[in-house]
Design a binder for these strands. Sequence first.
DNA 1: TAGCATCTACTACGACACGTCGTAGATGGC
DNA 2: GCCATCTACGACGTGTCGTAGTAGATGCTA
Lengths: 112, 112
Amino acid sequence: MEQLWASPAALTVREVHEQLAGTRELAYTTVMTVLDRLAKKKLTERERDGKAWRYRAAAPREELAADLMRDALDRAGDRREALVRFVGQVSDEEAALLREALSKLDDQEQTG
Amino acid sequence: MEQLWASPAALTVREVHEQLAGTRELAYTTVMTVLDRLAKKKLTERERDGKAWRYRAAAPREELAADLMRDALDRAGDRREALVRFVGQVSDEEAALLREALSKLDDQEQTG
DNA sequence: TAGCATCTACTACGACACGTCGTAGATGGC
DNA sequence: GCCATCTACGACGTGTCGTAGTAGATGCTA
């Protein structure tokens, strides 16, 4: 159900439901429950819009992924070893992206 | 239950159970079930040793962590963005380890 | 060879997460 | 005041996890 994340703006249950209607047949309440549970897990935020709630992703997909990567790393024991293995698994392209991200980090530290 | 991974060599259910007895009171069969389920998930391998099975971690903890990091990255959508956020979350020390791992990767590529 | 200890296979059960949905009640426009 | 809309809450099936028990196979030992 996390593909709701593809949507950029804050959406109401109705909107999400209609948007999903093309792909899958889901009851309105199903969408509601999911959105509600995600909100309870702080994965979405919601704000009133008249009678209805309007839901927005609390963090972009990429932030979630980064969190998960962190969690995995934290349960690693030897983090150096884990990181070595990780970069060993990664594609060349991803390694390049990683390097890029690291130098971006350098820039920030120098500037900020 | 994954702390069984601390053990280096292939252990029998009895051995794991006894080793755990100091810390926690677990039924023999509990240990057995866990080991068995881990084997079904390919997280342990096992080989016969007389009547008993001898279990060994299929991969070190660090490999598991690296796998999880990969999985997280794969579900990210924009991997560049995810990696940027990841290195942004990481401690200075970990960033250094990452850089180290990446240059180790370079060496390998040049040599191998 | 019979018996006892040891080990495995299989089943079970409570707790929890998830995807799915329904019912009941609140809310608000006409 | 009525009807459509929306939420809150509960529920059910399935799957995983931690825990454990029972039944049956296996093998040592007297």
